[in-house]
Simulated assay, not measured.
Amino acid sequence: MIIGEALKNKNILFFSVQTFDLEKEIVNKLEEFGANVHYYDERPANNNFTKGIIRLKRSFYQNIIDKYYRNILNSISKTVIFDFLFVNKGEVVPAFFLEEFKILQPDCEFILYTWDSFNNNKYATTILKYFNRKLTFDPEDAVKYKINFRPLFYLDAYKDVKNEVFEYDTLFLGTAHSDRYKISSEIGQWCAKNNLKIFCYYYMQGRLVYLYKRIFDKTFKQFDYRKLSFKSLKLDDIVNLYRKSKVILDINHPNQKGLTMRTFEAIGARRKLITTNKEIAKFPFYNPTNIYIIERDNVLLDKAFFKTDYQDIENNVYDKLSMEGWLYNIFIDAEESFWNKCL
């Protein structure tokens, strides 16, 4: 890929919500390619109150959002000529900022990528018109809004996961939401009956978030509080768990069609995958030897799936699913003809 040549010495203004340090990994990779990255959290703050109020009652927080972006405009308007404005998700950045930044930086290319569905982040649809390049991980949103489809990626760290003696037959890591606990518990019971070992890690953003969900989200009445963790795993922790595990369990949000980050981490680590997302069968890396699709309302498993080894996928597809491949599609070539085959 020629991404290093294309991004060398380019100035990028990058907005992204903080998500398990993925934003830092993106910045590091862009800088590795020689880009000069100016990163800002898309939210004025990263605490649970800010996250919640933006989603539930944005208007109460709008003055703080506007002030935050006004300060950013004042701090960057006279210092750097930007080649790219890259917004990852588009949950917060206000229209006035995009309009005024375009006046200040008329030659800057505006790029939006979202790793959330528009059903969960409707605000992003109101600012689509400001961007030259628009990409989404959600295949249905790509068709509906006529924007480029590009799934997620795996980090370089997963390339270093080697096959070892496995401690766990199945691994589930994820934020606690929807029917994840119900499905993973059913699979855990199946594993116990079949002499297979499962490890589950359910992350919750905070105790107040849990209490709120416990009251207003009926699915949380099933969660065993003792199994929740309020500390997010670091990248090294996740990679080490992948190293010890033969099969990764992926339970996507029932309202999302896009493939999760777990899917691509499993591919990057060359691990087998059990998933609730039927969309995966449309992708060029789908292989029933590696990927087992389950019904979320009727979980049926086959012990034979755990007895076979992972089969490598084609190198060119493996490369496309890396972070480097993801950035290539965002900044250089969306490769519509390749990815549209998955829609």
Rank of each mutant, 00 (worst) to 15 (best):
F230A: 04
V92C: 07
F20K: 08
N194W: 05
G268K: 00
G34T: 03
D312T: 14
E324C: 07
N71I: 09
A269S: 07
T175I: 10
K197I: 11
N11R: 10
I81N: 15
Y168V: 07
Y68T: 03
L343F: 06
N290V: 07
E23Q: 13
I127N: 01
L13I: 11
N194L: 06
C200P: 04
A6Y: 13
I293K: 02
S16A: 13
S229M: 06
A269P: 01
K122D: 15
T276Y: 00
Y210F: 15
F49H: 11
N195K: 12
D217L: 07
I332H: 05
N329A: 10
N316M: 10
I215T: 11
N36I: 08
G90H: 02
A269K: 00
R133H: 10
K193L: 15
G258N: 02
K8F: 14
K144C: 08
I111R: 08
F172S: 01
A35L: 04
T50V: 12
K144G: 09
K134W: 03
K122F: 13
D333A: 04
L22T: 11
N240D: 11
T136C: 05
F110W: 04
F230C: 06
N195M: 07
F338S: 04
F285M: 07
T308L: 12
D21G: 12
L98V: 09
L56W: 10
Y69Q: 02
K162F: 09
N28H: 10
L7R: 02
Y158C: 04
